[in-house]
């Protein structure tokens, strides 16, 4: 177990080193764009009511995490697999779980940083009441939701036939998930026959949880449990595709 964790940390370090090359792109995508949008919305909507502001904050978190996670994980695993890098891990005494933990933790760290910066700044700019505990709870929910998004990214990364397919699928799917999630709008606005699709998306439960917390001060534990239960199969399906030994 110690070796699995040590190796996961090493793989995570290797992945984090990629930021040296793409630090500017990472900062722009993960922080500047959401913060810039937050600022523009704050200028454009001084008289918005709290519900609209919370919808936008929730939407921003969902959009941002979908783009970062699905694109990042999908392309990372896709490049490792299709570019032959995974062979280096497979022929080393590395447990597949170390690889999964290493890759996953890298993206969870980036989501953690995003949440810690984005939530308080957006809350201040939009004058949404917030406290540290709420930021902690929301960060936890976004991280659980991100596990499912990691699973979706991993499905694409482990199964796509070439890197172009990985790019196309991750780009399309991250936007579809971000906008099919009732974050910018209320779930009641979604036609009833499409609601089931919304509920299958882990981002929906996360959005509803965040909105409940901000608007009603409710920590919706059952919703959190549902979110966890939904995220586990996504994650499992995603990583089942990582083959440590080809047939």
């Amino acid at each position: 177990m110690k070796k699995i964790i040590t190796d996961a940390i090493i793989i995570s370090k290797i992945n984090i080193l990629s930021l040296r090359e793409s630090l500017t792109a990472f900062v722009i995508i993960s922080l500047f764009i959401p913060l810039g949008m937050t600022y523009l919305i704050s200028l454009a909507s001084p008289n918005w009511d709290l519900i609209t502001k919370v919808n936008y904050l929730t939407g921003m978190l969902v959009l941002s995490s979908s783009l970062t996670i699905i694109n990042g994980i999908g392309q990372f695993i896709g490049q490792d697999r299709l570019g032959g890098i995974i062979s280096w891990y497979r022929t080393s005494p590395v447990h597949p779980l170390s690889y999964i933990l290493g890759v996953t933790s890298t993206y969870l760290i980036s989501i953690l940083i995003e949440c810690i910066i984005l939530i308080p700044i957006a809350s201040i700019l939009w004058r949404i009441p917030f406290n540290i505990i709420n930021i902690g709870i929301i960060t936890l929910v976004v991280i659980v939701q991100s596990l499912a998004l990691i699973g979706i990214g991993a499905v694409i990364g482990t199964r796509a036939k070439n890197i172009q397919t990985v790019s196309a699928l991750t780009n399309v799917l991250s936007f579809v998930i971000a906008f099919a999630t009732p974050a910018y709008y209320s779930i009641s606005a979604v036609p009833e026959k499409f609601r089931l699709i919304c509920y299958i998306l882990p981002t929906t439960e996360a959005s509803l949880f965040i909105k409940n917390l901000y608007l009603h001060g409710v920590v919706d534990v059952p919703l959190l449990i549902i979110l966890i239960l939904i995220s586990i199969p996504y994650l499992l399906i995603g990583f089942i595709g990582i083959k440590w030994r080809e047939k």
């Binding site: 290797i14 080193l17 890098i85 062979s87 280096w88 022929t91």
Partner: peptide
């Protein structure tokens, strides 16, 4: 106990 130099494949380009 083994070392493998594969025929094809890439290295991690940013390291």
């Amino acid at each position: 106990f083994i070392g493998v130099c594969p025929q094809e494949g890439n290295l991690i380009h940013y390291l």
